[in-house]
Design a protein around this nucleic acid. Structure first.
Lengths: 166, 166
DNA sequence: GATTTGTATCTCGACATCAAGATAATGAGG
DNA sequence: CCTCATTATCTTGATGTCGAGATACAAATC
């Protein structure tokens, strides 16, 4: 029969609630489970560099922005899609770890510019190198053709939520 | 160019770290974002029935099991993939809400059987009906052929983490 | 320049989660 | 029937998250 965990759940619903068509549950369920496994694998990789997923998210955003690796809190909020309370908490921890510093924003007395420290720069560069290698391992179960097909399908679906221009 | 948010992130990495091949990041990133959007949509649906995603998870597991809608805490742990501390917390809240009750397990004096109450049964039946309809809306962006292709690809990939027999 | 409105960031309180360790009951061997 | 390893569940402490509201500065208007 080749039933995975998601198929078993669907079979249970079919037995208990035959009035429901649970087809979409398979697609959504597998996608959700896969996302969880991948997030777990990422977290383990980040942890080897002393980073949480939350910390990686912020440091990577600063690193990707290019020199001088500094963004306003507002910019970080827009990119990372967390609330301001969450960002304050993340920055407090990263600052305590010496990976970022808050500098008053010369262009706006209300706010700060958040900048990677030397240590933060070194940490994120090492972490992302490892992270990318890890991602290559994680997708190795699919060949190039399968991965391209999956990319296309995910892209199509994602536009429902994010629009075609991001 | 038709760049979505994930493509923009990849482009930034290509500029800042051209030594890295970030192809897999697109696949994994889109999958992760999609999962987040779907989880958000689910949570909103559950909330209309007074349930959190965590509460839905537990009540649905009990409901799917069939009459008498009772499982040991151990069984719930195995199915829901959370830690025992998390499950204790979930059960405390569901019990306080009158949706489940803990009954001493007659077959093992150390443990409990967790059972849906009448109210819990009514709540989960209403919630799952709505939930399934919601899932149909969420997958509507893909036609049947696309959804089947996606199912197959996700299934292939998922076996890396869960094995082919669940 | 005083008032109003808006914006950037932080504070606070409520939850959810995990990991590690505590508690308590079972069962196997002697 | 003790003792010991095992198992089931709960407790505790650290993180991470959100939402609502506070604070502080800026910009626009009077």
């Amino acid at each position: 029969m080749d039933m995975d965990q998601v198929d078993k759940i669907k079979a249970q619903w079919n037995r208990e609630r035959p009035d429901l068509d649970v087809g979409p549950m398979g697609t959504i369920g597998r996608l959700g489970r896969l996302a969880r496994h991948l997030a777990q694998a990422h977290a383990e990789c980040f942890a080897t560099h002393g980073l949480s997923p939350a910390g990686f998210d912020v440091l990577a955003t600063l690193r990707r922005a290019g020199p001088p690796h500094a963004l306003t809190v507002k910019d970080l909020l827009a990119t990372t899609m967390v609330t301001s309370g969450t960002m304050t908490n993340r920055l407090d921890r990263l600052e305590a770890a010496g990976q970022v510093r808050r500098v008053p924003n010369p262009e706006d007395g209300r706010g700060f510019v958040v900048q990677l420290t030397e240590r933060g720069r070194a940490d994120i560069d090492a972490a992302v190198t490892d992270h990318v290698a890890n991602q290559h391992r994680l997708v190795a179960a699919l060949n190039n053709e399968e991965r391209a097909a999956l990319d296309a399908l995910l892209g199509t679906w994602l536009t429902v939520f994010e629009g075609s221009d991001g």
